[in-house]
């Protein structure tokens, strides 16, 4: 029963990375560029943080994650807008690139492709003091600072999308490209910015995964980037809906973690969020848009 009481707190702990990555995906989607590389950006961020933070501190680790994401975003955008590669395929290629690249760099930097622990990296939970005894409240307060940073960044990103001139430009790039061009703004540049923001958000979300475990764990993202992408469309491409869907998925992750206490097979427990997400997608509750830089490619759903 105790795991049920700690579920809200665990969901908040699990949710930061999904919420920020999903809002990043929304920023890109708003500008008309679908980011299928969120998973790769998260992995890249987690690795860049583990590489830099032990030497230069957590702030530099997050900066490295964001910087690496910018480089990857520039590569993808160059392929899509200059070489006119298909955006979906370019995203998949970026995921492969990161998967292979971080394995090679991990082998070169750490001498292994496996888990590398950095105890000093661990972002410790806040002490709720006497409130720790209270059910639900105690675990809700005992969050890691790295996780709270994610929620703060998510709030800023929401604000940026909803209430700033840049947010307006991003939406215009996706919906009224001609109006943007008439106003003297280059839509392609705005799209690149949106994609870079999306990648940076996902990378910082990935960096927090390394901070939360105090280690570089290959595959630590466990499909969270894809689930963040589903959250964007399950949330009807609105910031509020996206955050709500992300927190719902975070609750699923938290519940599946809780089930491990009952000796449930870890593989089946890990499969639960995918099963639940797949059921929602199969029911037609989350559909990708048909917006794309050019109307060609390997084929899309009807």
């Amino acid at each position: 029963m105790s795991w049920l009481l700690s579920l809200p707190g665990d969901a908040v702990a699990q949710g930061g990375s999904i919420v920020l990555a999903a809002l990043g995906g929304l920023a890109s989607d708003a500008a008309g560029v679908l980011n299928t590389a969120l998973e790769g950006f998260m992995s890249l961020g987690a690795f860049a943080y583990a590489l830099v933070a032990p030497r230069a501190g957590a702030f530099a680790g997050n900066l490295a994650a964001a910087g690496a994401a910018c480089l990857l975003a520039a590569t993808i955008i160059h392929a899509v807008f200059k070489l006119r590669a298909d955006i979906f395929v370019a995203g998949l290629a970026a995921n492969l690139l990161v998967q292979g690249g971080v394995a090679l760099l991990s082998w070169r930097a750490f001498g292994t492709k496996g888990v590398v622990a950095f105890p000093e990296l661990l972002s410790h939970r806040l002490d709720p003091g006497p409130l720790a005894e209270l059910p639900v409240i105690g675990t809700l307060i005992a969050q890691r600072p790295s996780n709270l940073l994610l929620y703060a960044l998510a709030a800023l990103l929401w604000l940026l999308l909803a209430a700033t001139p840049l947010g307006l430009r991003l939406r215009a790039a996706g919906q009224r490209e001609e109006a943007l061009a008439l106003a003297g703004v280059n839509p392609s540049r705005v799209r690149f910015m949106a994609f870079a923001i999306s990648g940076m958000a996902a990378a910082v979300a990935g960096a927090a995964l390394s901070a939360q475990t105090g280690a570089w764990v290959p595959g630590a993202t466990s499909g969270r980037g894809w689930i963040a992408l589903v959250a964007v469309y399950l949330g009807r491409r609105k910031p509020g809906g996206t955050v709500a869907a992300s927190l719902g998925f975070a609750a699923l992750f938290a519940a599946s973690n809780g089930l491990q206490a009952f000796d449930a097979p870890p593989e089946l427990v890990l499969a639960l969020p995918y099963v639940a997400t797949a059921l929602l997608v199969l029911a037609g509750k989350a559909r990708l848009p048909r917006l794309r830089p050019r109307d060609e490619g390997p084929g899309r759903d009807a």
Binding site: W226, Y233, L268, Y274, A278, L282, A283, G284, A302
Partner: peptide
């Protein structure tokens, strides 16, 4: 395929998610 046929579900997402769940289940 059924999701696409009857609910307009997106194959890109659904096929990936079903596959991921199946890989974990088969691993077990």
């Amino acid at each position: 395929a059924l999701g696409k046929r009857f609910a307009g579900a997106d194959v890109l997402l659904s096929s990936f998610l079903v596959s991921q769940a199946a890989v974990l289940a088969i691993d077990w």
